[in-house]
């Protein structure tokens, strides 16, 4: 049996996990599989979790790794695109946004992950560094480089990234 507090913490993260998974595979069935598999892995290895406070970070890391494994196996990087989502979504069928979403999809996965976690999931740079188990400087580098490739003005972020 696992601690009910940890169980509840993991439970709270479910939509976040789904969105992250979906952003990699772009379809519901695969995203669902990844999330279920990630939770199973997490529960099975719960003893590796040294500190309850890191349960969220730890779970997201498992989701990302599972999603990347999934992509590696299926070799179909980004089958259905975010484009579809945008077209069916009336509130956001802006052309610039479309272009940007294309650009985001074209980013190497490592860079895309950092952009998604920082700007869509509002994670701090240190948290991202913990999630991906990479040095903070690498996180900053990927964020800089990622934004540059997306042609997003860096001035807005410089203060924060320094």
């Amino acid at each position: 049996m696992i601690d009910s507090l940890i169980a509840d913490r993991l439970w709270e993260e479910r939509t976040k996990c789904y969105r992250v998974a979906f952003s990699y595979v772009k379809n519901e069935q695969d995203a669902m599989d990844i999330v279920s598999e990630s939770y199973l892995k997490a529960l099975k290895n719960i003893k590796q979790l040294k500190n309850d406070e890191y349960s969220s970070t730890w779970l997201i890391r498992i989701v990302i790794n599972t999603a990347l494994d999934h992509l590696r196996k299926s070799k179909k990087f980004v089958a259905a695109s975010l484009e579809e989502e945008l077209i069916t979504n009336e509130t956001s069928s802006h052309e610039e946004s479309l272009e940007l979403s294309h650009a985001l999809e074209k980013l190497p996965t490592d860079y895309k992950t950092v952009v998604i976690l920082r700007f869509f999931e509002d994670m701090k740079l240190t948290e991202i560094s913990e999630v991906l188990e990479i040095p903070l400087s690498t996180v900053k580098h990927r964020l800089y480089a990622g934004l540059e490739k997306l042609n997003i003005s860096m001035n807005l972020f410089i203060e924060e990234v320094q």
Binding site: R19, S23, E85, S97, L100, F120, S153
Partner: peptide, 16 residues
Amino acid sequence: MNDLLRLKQDYLQITI
């Protein structure tokens, strides 16, 4: 920045 925000909205509207 606005573009990124718009993209974030799309992201947050991924159907669960």
